[in-house]
Design a protein around this nucleic acid. Structure first.
Lengths: 192, 192
DNA sequence: CGCATTTCTTGATCTATGTCAATGCCCGGC
DNA sequence: GCCGGGCATTGACATAGATCAAGAAATGCG
């Protein structure tokens, strides 16, 4: 499982064996069977994680019991709830496995220690964060100006592999529309 | 103007005079009269900036010529377009001054040099980025699950001072609704 | 296999918000 | 002090997408 992390990191930075050993101490391998939770709303969020295998999602549940998916995290993505890893207050987000998944999890203090000990890792983290920010801004822009259909097409183009592997109603939830609407959008598109 | 930056930074980190001098070399003071642009869609984005005085905004313009505000940046906020400072491709975002504003602007290479030279600054940047990410996630959640009225109330609570100083139609644009709808929402609320 | 559960589709109707158009207001510039 | 153009409000109407309800397909599991 650590191999996956190392391969992922070495796509952008180089780490000696010794450095990677330091990094390893921060993480714990954990298996999450489909449907199991990494955290629930109301918890004090403790762990973030790197997805080595499978697929996770984070989401909120509104007062009507409806789920709203904030993020998908398949292999080689990070999933965490900075929200309150930072603040230490109970979180509003659920994180669970939508497939059987293997994660390397890590609490915030250990993660920060790793950042301090490994400057190249910190640099990688900063760049990743910036890219992530760009993606969030894109998504916000889409909500501001695009229709359901446009958002769907954009998702297909940007994350084709995620679109293939998650159930449609989850995709709908991520896009901010109902499953019914997504179904109709798809029908509409298939005509063209 | 540099005083403003220093006061802002010293709310969370400590910098010696020498360190602050290093930081200073990365930035150039610039005045932006109301309505003037820091960047336009189609430009190669070069500069990000720290707002010492006034208020900036970044936004996109859709094919119907409608503006969609992605961010407001009053005093002590940063405004930049990582989007393509990173990639070097023409940006899709406009950034302009909605009040007469004073900025400290900085290109990406200088900024990175400062991050490397000043670890405490890098640390501050990382924390700020994380907080910013939390805010973006909140905004996305709001689009997924909240009505126009709820988003408006949330904005009032979260950024009361911005709500007071920007024109309503810009606030509407930020919230992803029309000025007409915002006007009606406000009327509705004033009845209660 | 075969049944049960989840997922997807389809239709009918409803609603929040958008669009278009008109009016009045306020503020900044001459 | 007045004039003009942006800004907010209001009304009538249009529409994207939601909701509710029912089947039809898939999918998984004993």
């Amino acid at each position: 499982m650590f191999d996956a992390l190392r391969r992922y990191l070495e796509r952008s930075i180089t780490l000696s064996d010794e450095e990677f050993d330091i990094l390893k101490t921060a993480f714990m391998p954990r298996h999450y069977p489909k449907g199991s939770f990494l955290q629930r709303a109301g918890d004090i969020a403790r762990y973030g994680g790197f997805v080595a295998k499978g697929c996770m999602r984070s989401y909120t549940v509104d007062d009507k019991g409806k789920e709203h998916i904030v993020q998908f995290a398949p292999e080689n993505w990070w999933i965490s709830d900075l929200n309150n890893s930072l603040i230490g207050e109970p979180t509003g987000y659920f994180i669970d496995a939508i497939e059987d998944s293997d994660l390397l999890v890590c609490d915030l203090p250990s993660f920060e220690k790793a950042l301090t000990a490994l400057p190249t890792f910190a640099e990688h983290y900063r760049l990743g964060m910036q890219k992530h920010m760009v993606a969030k801004n894109r998504r916000i822009s889409a909500f501001l100006s695009a229709t359901a259909e446009e958002r769907y097409l954009d998702f297909l183009k940007t994350y084709p592999s995620i679109a293939r592997r998650v159930p449609q109603h989850m995709l709908a939830s991520y896009l901010g529309i109902t499953p019914e609407t997504l179904s109709r959008v798809r029908k509409q598109l298939s005509r063209k």
